[in-house]
């Protein structure tokens, strides 16, 4: 019997702490599979964020950092400048990357820092209990937007991929989703490209992954991935926003 789908070497055996149906686990697996397939497990250094994926350093079986909130791109910059021949990636959520860490991600991208960022956008703060994120959809109810996000007072969903793709330092920017197998396959392809771009020394690469948060959205997992497809995808169009040859 040939193994069609197995357990990636680049993941430790530790079970994820994520809630049932949280798609962080899918994204972790895709990143690990890509590291395996590129044969870079022993060359890779990852940087975990603050947020639900704070414990990512326990799951990836590569050298890891735990960064302060939003600063993963700065930490990754420090690492990459010391080890320009290694592969450095950050794994960050939307509060981490698109709120407190906006300065760090924009400048890492603008410097053309040769790192790969996996940006998990689930439109909410998970770890702290479901508060409004900069990526929360218009009208979406959260614990700090109990009447739905009002653009008059809370602004608009922030479009990180679009923003970063206009910077000259970014080499690869894509937005993908993991709500069904077809999209998961595309997501993996984009993540692989984002690592290859770094290996080839082209510049900064980021993949924004639309992700479901059943617990804080108040939905069953099956319902949550459907909600993602129906509501998040129209606000956050999928596709490759930038690819430097």
């Amino acid at each position: 019997m040939k193994l069609v789908a197995g357990y990636p070497d680049s993941l430790t055996e530790k079970p994820f702490h994520y809630c049932p149906g949280c798609t962080h686990g899918i994204i972790h697996r895709l990143v690990a599979e890509v590291i395996d397939e590129l044969g870079i497990r022993e060359e890779t250094i990852g940087v975990a964020p603050v947020g639900c994926s704070v414990l990512a350093y326990e799951y990836f079986d590569v050298d890891m950092f735990e960064a302060s909130h939003g600063r993963a791109p700065a930490v990754a910059t420090g690492v990459k400048r010391v080890h320009p021949d290694k592969i450095v990636f950050t794994y960050q959520g939307d509060g981490d990357l698109a709120s407190i860490g906006t300065a760090e991600i924009i400048h890492a991208a603008n410097r053309g820092e040769k790192i790969t960022t996996i940006f998990v956008n689930n439109a909410i703060y998970g770890m702290t209990g479901g508060q409004m994120a900069p990526t929360t959809l218009v009208g979406q109810k959260t614990t700090t937007s109990p009447f739905g996000r009002d653009t008059n007072t809370a602004g608009h969903p922030i479009k990180i991929s679009e923003m970063l793709s206009v910077l000259d330092g970014s080499a690869y920017i894509a937005r993908v989703s993991v709500h069904d197998p077809k999209h998961i396959r595309q997501a993996k392809k984009a993540i692989k490209k984002a690592f290859q771009v770094q290996i080839e020394g082209k510049g900064f690469a980021l993949v924004e992954v639309l992700s479901a948060c059943p617990t804080n959205w108040g939905m069953a997992p099956v319902e949550a991935v459907k909600w993602l497809a129906d509501n998040m995808v129209p606000t956050y169009p999928l596709g490759e926003f930038k690819e430097v040859e």
């Binding site: 019997m1 789908a5 197995g6 357990y7 994820f16 962080h24 899918i26 993991v178 197998p181 998961i184």
Partner: peptide, 16 residues
Amino acid sequence: CAMICPDVVIRVYRPE
């Protein structure tokens, strides 16, 4: 099933 599993629960094999 393995592809969408968020917890890497499932291993799938194919006869050779």
